[in-house]
Structures are given as C-alpha cells and as structure tokens.
Computed example of a mutant assay.
Amino acid sequence: MLHVCTGLAISTTAGCNSTGTVTRPVAPSLISEEKALALPPPGGPGIVGVVERPRANGVEQVISLATTARVSGQNYLRVEFFGPAVSRGQSAPFRSIHERIILREAAEAIPGVNLVRRSTYLQNSYGPFAYAAGRSTLGDTCLYAWQQIRAGTASDGIGRNFGMIQVRWRLCDSYASEEQLLSAVYNYTITGTFEGKAWNPFGEPRPADPRIGETGQPIYPVANAAPENLSIGYAGGVDLRPITISVRRTAPVPVKPALAKPTADRPVEGPRVPLPTSLPTGADKAAAAPQASNASALVVKVPSPRSISAPPQ
C-alpha cells in the first residue's frame, strides 16, 4: 500500500501523509470575562464580552465595554500580544505606531466625530500613551487612546525583552467628561504576559531603594517628601487637631426705643388723641348722661328659643 501511495500523482501525495485528525480552523471565539488579558478599572466601564483571536506569534483580544453614548459603535479595550510562535494561525507582523496611521484608526473607530490629537505627554503604570478626543453633534464625549508596551532595551545585551503589547481604547459616553474617560486609561490592568524572560514586554523590575538598610538615610511614609514639609510631631498628649467652631445665625431681636426722661422744661409726651371737630353742648351732655330714674324701669324680655316668632309677653 505504501508503494501505491508513492506511485500516485503529486496531487494525492499530501493525502497519504495526512494524519486524518479533524481540527477546528483558527477563528475568533467568544471567551469568558475571567480569561480577559486586560481589565478596565474598578467601577467601570463594565465588560460586555470578550472575543479572542489566536495568532501564530501571539493573541488578540477585543474586550467589549458597556456603552451609553448615542454615537454608532461599541466601546472596547483591544490588546494584542506579539511574541514567539505559541499558536496556530497567521502570524501578525510587529507594528510600530505612526501618527498618520493611528489617527486613521481613530477616525474609523469613532466615525462622524471630529477628534483632536492631544499633545500633552501622559504616562500610566505601563509607560507613555497618547489619545485623541472630541464631542459628537449629539453631545457625547469620545476618546481614542493608544499605547505600546515594550521594554526599551535588552537587559544584558542578548535576546531578551522581545515581547510587545499593543493597547487601544475606544470610549464614548453621554455623561462623562474627557478627564473621566481618561481615568480609565490610567487605571486599567493587564493580566496577561509571556512565559519566559526572553519575551517579557515590561522590562526588568526596578531595583530596591539604595537607602534601605543604610544609616543616616531616613525613609518617610510620604514618597520624596522633605522632613520640613511633613506634619509629623508629638506634643506630649496635647490635642493639636484644629478646632471647628460652628456659628449659628439667628434672626435679629427688635429693640424698643427707650422713653426719654422727663425734665422740668420738657415733659413726657403721651399718645396724641385727635380732638373732635365740635365740642358737645349742654343738651348733648344731658342726652348722653344715663337716666338713673328710668334705668330701673327698663326691663328686657328675652323670648323663649322654642317660640322665637311669637311676640314677647
């Protein structure tokens, strides 16, 4: 049978060498959030889903994030690991960041929004990064950030620190400001890395502080703080905390004016009573005076409540 296979045409020789194992082609797949190689900061934006694409020299993940903006498109955090041959599929070439290409990426990720490249130098825990931002016609704030994580130089001059991570952020929000969106780029966490020191993309760890263990080198709880600027002291049990005094405002109490003291030439004036237009005459006084003789003769009869309409008896 082996002799038959060797005598077949060239087009059939590949079938004789095949093992016949059924395999699944390399394609993007949906994975769980726990397997994400990068995580947004605590508090959001939340992860909606993670799509992973294996490559021959690494892996790419698109981590979809919650979106509240009215701009078309999905927020995401995309990470690409470039390193040794670790998987099947097509290899992705190492790419460096070019200004024109990255701005084209931003325009494709957030269409219809005029993004302006920010020229301020920024740096997070993984190194420098840059971004472009703008506002849509509907009032959404949008941001597109990019970062390349790679050790600057080899540690000892031989094959080390060859790995590289490319990071892309696409964020649009109807309520957040540009600074709030930028805080996500500062506080995200990369959870994946390469096995082996030769492909470490983060470089060598920083050496320990040379002051450790040395005499005459005090180390304070605040980093890089001068002793004269530290509020550290002991006052022998005296409470040095600032005293807070609360002032309560009340309505003013009206004060009555004091009466002037009478003097010999200035008596105290009382309230003025208006005088009548005409003084009463003697006849008016007599009519107004009560008649004592007739007061006892006048008797007022009150009718009974049950017979109000009846004339008094």
Rank of each mutant, 00 (worst) to 15 (best):
Ala198Gln: 02
Leu181Lys: 10
Ile219Glu: 10
Asp209Pro: 12
Asp209Ala: 02
Gln180Lys: 05
Gly203Arg: 00
Gly196Gln: 09
Glu179Pro: 07
Arg206Tyr: 10
Asp209Phe: 03
Ala184Gly: 10
Pro201Leu: 00
Pro205Asn: 01
Asp209Trp: 03
Pro205Ala: 15
Pro210Ala: 08
Pro201Trp: 04
Phe202Asp: 09
Thr193Glu: 14
Ile212Arg: 11
Ala208Gln: 04
Arg211Lys: 10
Ile219Leu: 13
Trp199Pro: 00
Leu182Pro: 08
Thr193Phe: 05
Leu181Gly: 03
Gln180His: 10
Ala208Ile: 08
Phe194Asn: 06
Ile190Leu: 06
Asn187Ser: 10
Thr191Cys: 03
Pro201Glu: 00
Ser183Glu: 12
Ile219Tyr: 06
Arg206Thr: 12
Pro210Leu: 05
Asn200Lys: 06
Phe202Met: 01
Pro218Ala: 09
Thr189Met: 02
Glu214Lys: 13
Thr193Asn: 14
Pro201Val: 02
Pro207Met: 06
Thr215Cys: 04
Ala198Cys: 06
Tyr186Phe: 15
Ile190Met: 04
Leu182Arg: 15
Asn200Thr: 00
Gly216Ala: 05
Glu204Trp: 09
Phe202Val: 04
Leu181Gln: 09
Pro207Tyr: 09
Gly216Pro: 03
Tyr186Trp: 14
Leu182Phe: 08
Ala184Glu: 07
Gln217Met: 12
Arg211Tyr: 03
Trp199Lys: 06
Glu214Gly: 02
Gly213Tyr: 08
Phe202Glu: 03
Asn200Ser: 07
Asn200Ala: 00
Asn200Val: 02
Gly203Ala: 01
Ile190Phe: 10
Trp199Asn: 11
Phe194Met: 01
Gln217Tyr: 14
Trp199Arg: 03
Gly213Ile: 01
Glu204Ser: 13
Pro205Asp: 10
Ala184Ser: 15
Ala198Leu: 00
Gly203Asp: 01
Lys197Gln: 12
Ala198Ser: 13
Thr215Leu: 12
Gly216Leu: 09
Phe194Cys: 02
Pro205Tyr: 03
Glu214Asn: 07
Gly196Phe: 05
Ala208Leu: 06
Ala184Met: 08
Trp199Ser: 01
Ile219Ser: 01
Glu204Met: 11
Tyr186Glu: 12
Trp199Cys: 04
Arg206Trp: 09
Lys197Val: 09
Ser183Asp: 09
Pro201Gln: 05
Phe194Leu: 01
Pro218Ser: 01
Ser183Asn: 12
Glu179Val: 13
Pro218Val: 02
Pro207Ser: 09
Ile219Phe: 06
Ala208Gly: 08
Tyr188Asp: 04
Thr215Arg: 08
Gly203Ile: 01
Arg206Glu: 15
Asp209Leu: 01
Val185His: 06
